[in-house]
């Protein structure tokens, strides 16, 4: 089913919207959550919370593309659950994703003002536009979807080591880009 048709079902408040959303993006939602959460039941709960979040926000939202919207909700909910329960459970793989990000943006940035956070996101988006398809794919899969390097290698029929090196170089370029943009001290 096309995204527009699924969104139309949400606007009609038809429960079939959730069925179709799960059919089309359920695997992506669970994978995104599973990359962050270590617990099968937590992943299921996160997926359900994601569908609830989509149900509660469409309408009035009319997101395009729908997959980005849904996966962003899943990602945020999974991260929230992860941080809330981290006293009892750790996910070293997810910690590794956060460490890598911290590594390429180590300088203190004042993010208390919301617009500065959005400015940084926009700068990173502009940076992504300068990359090759593959480098951009690797970066987004690793740092938005929190995939492991091995999973990315499986998706792309590539070698983990090569992907790791490409990610490292992309992070170096990002650091340089943000410095030149004046966003890092």
């Amino acid at each position: 089913m096309e995204d527009s048709e699924i969104i139309a079902l949400f606007y009609e408040r038809s429960e079939q919207a959730i069925v179709e959303l799960n059919r089309k993006y359920g695997t992506a939602v669970k994978k995104t959550a599973a990359n962050i959460l270590n617990d099968r039941l937590d992943v299921e709960e996160c997926a359900n919370d994601t569908y609830l979040g989509v149900w509660n926000t469409i309408p009035p939202q009319n997101p395009k593309p729908l997959v980005s919207y849904v996966c962003r909700i899943a990602r945020n909910l999974a991260a929230k659950k992860y941080h809330a329960r981290r006293a009892a459970k750790r996910n070293s793989a997810f910690d590794a994703v956060l460490d890598e990000l911290e590594e390429c943006i180590p300088a203190p940035v004042n993010l208390e003002a919301e617009y500065e956070a959005k400015e940084l996101s926009a700068a990173i988006s502009r940076f992504l536009g300068t990359l090759s398809y593959e480098d951009r794919f690797f970066f987004v899969r690793r740092y938005f979807y929190a995939d492991s390097v091995s999973d990315i290698a499986a998706m792309t029929q590539g070698k983990s080591h090569r992907i790791s090196v490409r990610l490292f170089r992309t992070r170096e370029k990002l650091h340089q880009y943000l410095t030149e943009e004046g966003l890092l001290t």
């Binding site: 997101p63 990000l101 956070a117 940084l120 996101s121 988006s125 951009r136 794919f137 987004v140």
Partner: peptide, 14 residues
């Protein structure tokens, strides 16, 4: 911050 990048790239990497 990474979560708020351009939707196009999130969809592209799906």
């Amino acid at each position: 911050v990474i979560g708020d990048i351009d939707d196009r790239y999130i969809a592209e990497a799906f």
